[in-house]
Amino acid sequence: MKFFRVFLIGLLVLPLPALVWLSFWFPSSFPSFPGEPEVLSWISMFSSDRGLLSSLPLSLALSSLSAAFCSVLGFAVSRFIAIHPRRRTLVVAAYFPYLLSPVIFAFLLRFWFSLCGLSGTFMAVFIAQICILFPYNIIVFDAFWNDRSIAMDRQAASLGATLGQRIRYVLIPMAKPWLALALFQSFLISWFEYGLSATIGLGKVKTLTILTYGFIQEANPAFAAVSALILTLPPLLVLALNRSLLRPVVL
């Protein structure tokens, strides 16, 4: 078990040394290894107009907002779906965005956004990501709404708890691991999302993932490595923060 854990952590951090080498050593030393380190790529990324200073806060805002919005909305709507007579049909409908390729889905959405004059805006990318994240949250929370959690909800109602009290004092404490999982996964999906954001954003909404991909296409491995390292840090931070929340509640 311990070996498996170490193996998993190893897999997770494996790309990091390569990225660090590329960002510090690659510019001056390639092809010699390891060569002399230099911080030029880092200074250049933060000081010059490479787009990092605007992309980083934009990505953080986009991913945090869309993850929080979809987790809360997904939790509320999944409760409604769980007690609906057509529960299975509604949950199957949530798989619709995943039946299409993200590019096809983005193409369809772009048509509607163009009609509304939204294409190429932050709001358009935000709404497009919700179209992917909201169904995902419905699927995640469907697993939480089993017979027992529904019975707990009914028990609390029978004891006099209003809907608001049930959500606050019964359902949220019980759903804490699911909420943490949904929030974390939604953040990651949004954070690393490329095709949809690029198609809907029309190149005007430059998330950090789009910026990194741009450096890769420019064959600029040093800048791509710096950008990729920064791209990796927030998810690791979120994972560390969520470790305690991901422990399941014994029902």
């Binding site: 027992r148 707990m152 019964v170 404490p173 019980m174 509640v249």
Partner: peptide, 10 residues
């Protein structure tokens, strides 16, 4: 309403 299961808040 009291169920067969006690349904205590865990």
């Amino acid at each position: 309403y009291l169920n067969q299961e006690p349904l205590l808040f865990p």
